[in-house]
């Protein structure tokens, strides 16, 4: 633990991160609500910085993401929360000129280590996007796509059914598995994308504003789903909707835009990372309080 601290970012968040880790180490049971699996960390980030063509998008991020938690990343637009999310399954590799610095451990393994294959990493760490992006294929083929490319072809029907049930979509689509996925409503499409994702059997699911394109009822269904899914998966969600973060997440990270002296460059920085309840009721940082109470942003 102590070794980690020296590598964390400077200032407040470093101290917080350190205090946070210490807290877990000392009395994990008291610190969280619900299950007792908190001790296992899925991601450990230390001084993570993401740059596009040499310009920082986020800097000095230090946080731990725990197994079977829903961890929410909130903050104003441009604070780099999506950027941060996309380095957790190496989707940033696809952007020319993107670069990730600092330490990013996944179950203790360096996710950006030279031996790590991003394609393999993405099988373990699934992702759901802001806008539902079903493939222009049948519902069945959408879900079966992942297992097929992984060569898991035995019992495909069962896998598809299990994934669709897992995404609470089975009852709505079981009679029209062969119809085009574009015929589904937006909310159904998004749940199909979640089903598609869990059919690959990842251990973590990243969600990038998964409800921002949906109506309130569909949003509610997906939020219920997230709470169910965290029994099995670890979930990291980016959201601009603070109520949503408060409803579904166990832990919340608040990021903010920071400017340099000349206001030429801007980047995202982690302000506070804590239990969701604490962030929304009794944040330790004034900026967090201003943001969650709606004074800024």
């Amino acid at each position: 633990m102590a070794a980690d601290e020296s590598r964390a970012g400077t200032g407040r968040e470093a101290r917080e991160a350190a205090a946070e880790r210490a807290a877990i180490a000392v009395r994990p049971e008291e610190f969280q609500h619900g299950s007792s699996s908190k001790r296992e960390k899925v991601f450990e980030l230390n001084g993570v910085e993401v740059l596009y063509s040499g310009v920082s998008a986020v800097k000095g991020i230090a946080l731990d993401i725990h197994r079977n938690d829903v961890t929410a990343l909130i903050g104003p637009s441009g604070c780099g929360k999506s950027t941060l999310l996309r380095c957790l399954n190496r989707m940033n590799d696809l952007i020319p000129g993107a670069e990730v610095r600092g330490e990013l451990l996944y179950h203790g393994e360096d996710l950006y280590g030279p031996e790590v294959d991003p394609v393999q990493a993405r099988k373990l760490i699934g992702m759901v996007f802001q806008k539902p992006n079903p493939f222009p294929k049948s519902i069945y083929d959408n879900v079966a796509f992942g297992p097929r490319i992984l060569g898991r072809k035995e019992d495909l029907d069962a896998t598809v059914e299990r994934a669709l049930r897992g995404a609470a979509l089975w009852d709505e689509v079981k009679d029209r598995l062969d119809s085009n996925a574009f015929g589904l409503s937006g909310g159904q499409q998004q749940r199909l994308c979640i089903a598609r994702c869990i059919a690959v059997e990842p251990d973590t699911i990243l969600m990038d504003e998964p409800c921002s394109a949906l109506d309130p009822i569909s949003t509610g269904k997906i939020e219920d789903l997230m709470i169910e899914l965290k029994e099995e998966f670890s979930i990291v969600i980016v959201t601009h909707n603070m109520q949503q973060a408060a409803r579904v997440s166990d832990r919340t990270a608040f990021l903010m835009v920071e400017l340099d002296a000349d206001e030429d460059n801007r980047w995202g920085r982690l302000v506070e990372f804590d239990d969701t309840e604490k962030i929304f009721t009794n944040p330790s940082d004034q900026r967090t309080e201003d943001y969650v109470s709606g004074k800024v942003g």
Binding site: Q120, R122, F129, F145
Partner: peptide, 15 residues
Amino acid sequence: VPDSIRQGSLALGAT
């Protein structure tokens, strides 16, 4: 073909 299709596929671990 929109990029979201490529990203969706890559995010599932497709090469």
